[in-house]
Amino acid sequence: MIDAQQLTKIYKVHKRPPGLAAALRSLWSRPTTEVRAVDGVSFHIEPAERVGFLGPNGAGKTTSLKMLSGLLHPTSGKVVVAGHVPQKRAHAFLKQITLVMGQKQQLMWDLPPSETFLLNRSIYDIPKRAYDETVAELTALLELEDLLGKPTRQLSLGERMKCELACALLHRPKVLFLDEPTIGLDVQMQATVRKFIRSYNERFQATVLLTSHYMDDVAALCPRVIVIDHGHLIHDGPLDELVKRTRPDKRLKLRFSREVEERELQGLGSVVERAPTSAVLVVTQAELQGAVQRAMATLPLVDLSVEDPPLEDVMRDLFAHGRAIQAVGT
């Protein structure tokens, strides 16, 4: 469904030092520097896959997404999405894709979302019956019935995002590019949006490419992740593989029936969180079995669980590791 080969985007950026003198100089002299926002990235995504696109701020995620959706022309490399070259912006291609940006909105601010829906119906040339059915479905799934008639400006952020999602899916696209769709939403609304994206993907066999800073989104939705940093692809594969490779250690979560002294935990692993009747220890994979046995034998346990490290920590370590390699290389 999506095939990118050596995808590269270079921006020319005008840079100047701060201050009035530099601003005056820049009126006639504008030196530019090249920024390689995306640098030789290749990947292939099958139909109906849900893929997380991860990376720190400025890694090149959004630029990649915009090249895949035809908004930006790649500087070099090849990309094919749903059998089309995106930058040609063929109508047959645009009818198969959608783009949702958590930080920007397409709903008309002063009018109710239903008006933007109707405009999109005309633009996408959706027959009335199909339109009515889709709106009814989306309204039921996202609980929109009370929202569609209110002016957009009167909706809360979460309500607006639900309407944005519905608006972007009226034409039943086969490829969803979702750029931070849950940004700023409360936990409950994030869960609603995630559940909806998953059900849309399963129902329509739609391909989903998602960027998010909320690792819960990625963990809940994306069996596969593509990680880029400084425009380079640094991981492409299952999420658990990334976790194992980057942080092979496990977190041992313990709860006790009485207060436990620090010395009682010695030798089990390194303590990262501690309260009188609970503790979290980081243990290497090799030492895990022994640590569990010893804990069960020596501690007043009421609960014990073994978990992967939080995805946030994994990503932080991954990017720190990448930078360290780059620093050595330069």
Binding site: K66, S69, G70, L71, R89, H91, A92, L94, K95, I97, T98, L99, M101, K104, Q105, Q106, N120, I123, Y124
Partner: peptide
């Protein structure tokens, strides 16, 4: 936000 215009099949 011109992105939303350019992504439309029109």
């Amino acid at each position: 936000t011109l992105d939303f215009v350019l992504i439309k099949p029109a």
